[in-house]
Design a protein around this nucleic acid. Sequence first.
DNA 1: CTGAAAGCGCTAACAA
DNA 2: TTGTTAGCGCTTTCAG
Lengths: 345, 345
Amino acid sequence: MTSEEIAKLCGVSRATVSRVINNSPNVKEETRQKILAVIKEKNYVPIAPARRLAGIDSNIIGLFVLDIDISDSKSRVSESTYFSQLINLIIDQANNFGFQVLVSIITSQKQLSEIRNLFMSRTIFSGIFIGAFNDEIQLDDDIILQYPTIIIDRQSERVVKRPNRLVVNLDNFEGAYNATQFLIKLGHTRIGHISGDLRKLSGIERYEGYRKALEDAGLGFDKNLVREGNFLDDSGYKLAHDILKENVTAIFCANDVMAISAIKAIKETGLSVPEDISVIGFDNTAIGNYIIPTLTTVNAPLEHIAEECIQSLKYFCKHKHFKQKEIRVRTNLIIRDSTKRALEF
Amino acid sequence: MTSEEIAKLCGVSRATVSRVINNSPNVKEETRQKILAVIKEKNYVPIAPARRLAGIDSNIIGLFVLDIDISDSKSRVSESTYFSQLINLIIDQANNFGFQVLVSIITSQKQLSEIRNLFMSRTIFSGIFIGAFNDEIQLDDDIILQYPTIIIDRQSERVVKRPNRLVVNLDNFEGAYNATQFLIKLGHTRIGHISGDLRKLSGIERYEGYRKALEDAGLGFDKNLVREGNFLDDSGYKLAHDILKENVTAIFCANDVMAISAIKAIKETGLSVPEDISVIGFDNTAIGNYIIPTLTTVNAPLEHIAEECIQSLKYFCKHKHFKQKEIRVRTNLIIRDSTKRALEF
DNA sequence: CTGAAAGCGCTAACAA
DNA sequence: TTGTTAGCGCTTTCAG
């Protein structure tokens, strides 16, 4: 079934059918209705490649999950609840607005450099990148630079300024600051931090939020109370064991996954949460509700991130530029059972 | 940059360039090398829609995650680790073989019926379906029937027989059977089962494996020891509370998510795992290792499922039919700390 | 408001 | 082994 056949059936030319399909206003309402009816009756769907070739942009967004880390062959960041939820939400939002999403998990430099081909071959018209390291320069590839691109979780100063580049970030600093401040208010003074991957903006900012909160409270910042993790469960587990040597009474973990495995480690040493050690996570993933004790955490509203991305893309399609350069999505603290007033209080 | 320009640069015709791109053997090696060199130098990538229009099939696979369930507005099956891991693995495998994957989360009947458009518009050439209910007839849509389709976790008898339809299943029955048998060997006699969604094959088969193991062991099957769940944490939690009334000493849960929340429920009633109640899950998701006690479970090798899917698709592209009608992927029991010999032993 | 015709970039007979 | 040519199905000027 081609537009030609539909045209014949309606006694009009292909051009008119095309106009109807593309919502051109210059069609008599009567003709439009008739064509629409026949299209529906015949289950006609335009051949996408033909439209593409004739100049209509692809409606496919590339969603690239960067998960390059040679040091860790086993656990994949892309499999974490955080990422899979975000992926889901982005796909959902995109579909709602008539976009399709082509997902790629990028685990090697080679794959990263092949992304450009998806743009050049006109398979996708835009790309959303998540999981990138803060200094991943490949994303500034000359080719990619030509297409609308959204980067999630990257320092906006690091992104080449162009009207077709948008950065969407969580307010990690604020979230971490509030979490730490909350522990301080509970009377904790030796508060440890198991950081995320410090090559990522979220890792850096959560670390800084933690630090600033301590300093603002006059507790001072002690580097010995910090362990550099990587957002994965393994690191939460090992580093918790290690950080306990510092006699901390509370630990702020850069995400829930590490917080949960940290709790496991803490329990193994005979201590209990929150009686002996308070623990706070970050992300507010679902499991936080199903562990014992339930996890106090910073809620990262991924649905807002997804929404901002797709809305912005929608805007871009219309105006050929993004409305802004960076979007910050705010967080909020969710208090559950893994935190408690410090003992000496 | 078009093939025309490459042709000019090489002093040949577009046809020859096209032959090189498509690996036609009828090109002098010298010419081929020259063209290849220029292509590389100029960073030329063929415009995909043009190739599509000229008759070359799309290399995009649609991956459809069916998550239609009006009863449950909140929790999404598609966000479970099980699914996201499977999605990841399929994408990985696909990318390895030069396929791209367009992912769609289907949460409504409307979206389900729109899948056909992706085929008709020639956006995708094939579809992989996961999460379908056993009797989801929409998948037998006349249109979809024309394209190579793989369905994961569905009774093969329910799938319309065609040389372009493949069913890939886990050996759920065997896995459940072994898990239950393991509990029996530990001396448990009152073994409960929190089932999965019984509209799905995996839910049904795991239930049946459990039942058969009990019968084979001469313990008889008691329907009162079964609670019908839906694979989501909420149901594991609630049903565990309920099933404890039956004085079970062991519970086989149809997946890890439910097992983990069941453990939480058990602990809340003052009982402990595995001392009072043994618990077994199914899937072998990563968290199983990070809860206390670590979870005994049935390993579902998703990587094999993904591999079989893509290998089969590769085979299909060559032969225009699948090698087989159904593929079964085997499981194995992973014994950890959530199970223990029955007390009276 | 509608039709005719050109062209998007590529592939695949068919000839040479 | 290579070139010529005719589409693939759609959109979009340009006329009318």
